[in-house]
């Protein structure tokens, strides 16, 4: 038996744990606190806002009542002119209302969600096929592929940004919004495929071979054994890998910035937040609220997948 701790040891232990947890959590608390603070309160070092100030969230989520539009008198006279068509009037008005201050957070979130979701699904699916083959089937170049995955997994995106950009320019994908988004999707696919293959491959290796053999004895072909036994059995791990890929795509900044710069409507959250921060509208409460809202889905995913994630990551060699 290990010795029981003395009171002093307990105090030291709890102090260290507390210090570590505070170190990890403090920046999050800072973000949350600032997002809820009124501008006059920013200089206040306390984490608790003097007044709870939810405007930043309301604004980002489009819950603010539409502002009274300040229209110069000359324009107002134009608008009052009955000769002008209703359409023209709308356009004129729009010019004033969209004057820089609006940040379509919902739209960016949707963009990010869509591309991350599709990336997660495609990557998990393709990776499960390949990982199964590499983990379980004998075929030529199998070990080369198993090692190749490891290698590819470690070649970071930075090294590929020039050739990938040039490739998409050369095939003409970079010249349209659709093509750009497709390029970005493909890039997210390769950023997630190797890690997904690695995690799933290691997981499949832990499933006893005899399960597939039993399925084959029960009349399943190899493919049926995979679909009807291995895949249903791996659901929790597949979900974990999906979440992992989803989060990688959700967090990605580098390629989004290279490819989407000129297509503002299709910006993803990381790109949008960076633009928000560097724009003249940089207001701490808004940035922090936007940070919180970007963080939230990731935290939810994390809580959903936590049970399997830690194990999967350590088995999988670990990216990060």
């Amino acid at each position: 038996m290990m010795n029981k701790r003395t009171p002093l040891q307990s105090v030291i232990l709890y102090t260290l744990v507390l210090a570590l947890v505070i170190f990890c959590v403090f920046p999050f608390l800072q973000i949350l606190s600032t997002s809820l603070k009124h501008p006059i309160d920013w200089g206040n070092p306390s984490l608790i806002p003097r007044i709870l100030h939810l405007d930043a969230y309301k604004e980002l989520l489009g819950l603010m009542p539409a502002k009274e539009i300040d229209v110069p008198a000359s324009i107002q006279r134009l608008l009052d002119n009955p000769a002008l068509s209703a359409e023209k009037k709308q356009m004129l008005l729009a010019k004033f209302s969209s004057g820089g201050d609006v940040f379509p957070f919902g739209r960016y979130m949707l963009n990010t969600f869509v591309i991350s979701f599709i990336t997660g699904i495609c990557s998990t699916f393709l990776a499960s096929l390949a990982a199964y083959a590499i983990a379980r089937l004998r075929f030529p170049a199998q070990s080369l592929m198993a090692n190749g995955v490891l290698f590819v997994y470690m070649v970071g995106g930075v090294l590929l940004m020039v050739p990938l950009y040039q490739m998409s320019v050369n095939v003409g994908l970079a010249s349209s919004a659709g093509g750009t988004i497709f390029s970005l999707f493909l890039i997210y696919l390769i950023q997630t495929l190797p890690v997904a293959m690695y995690m799933l491959g290691n997981y499949f290796r832990t499933i006893p071979f005899s399960l597939e053999e039993a399925a084959m004895m029960d009349g399943c072909s190899r493919v049926e054994a995979f679909w009807r036994i291995i895949m249903p059995l791996s659901k929790p791990m597949l979900f974990t890998v999906f979440i992992y890929c989803f989060v990688i795509a959700w967090n990605e900044y580098l390629f989004a910035s290279v490819f989407l710069k000129q297509y503002q409507d299709f910006h993803t959250l990381p790109l949008a937040l960076q633009t928000l921060f560097t724009s003249k509208n940089a207001i701490w409460d808004r940035i922090m609220a936007a940070s919180m809202l970007t963080l939230l889905p990731v935290i939810i995913c994390f809580m959903l997948a936590n049970r399997h994630l830690s194990g999967g990551l350590t088995d999988g060699g670990v990216k990060g």
Binding site: P208, E213, A214, A215, M217, G219, P232
Partner: peptide, 28 residues
Amino acid sequence: PPHKRNIAMVFQNYALYPHMSVRENIVF
């Protein structure tokens, strides 16, 4: 291939499908 040989087999480690009930295992 094995699935076309019409053979039934009992494995040393039983190889029961963990995600299926006993009933589903038997009738699979």
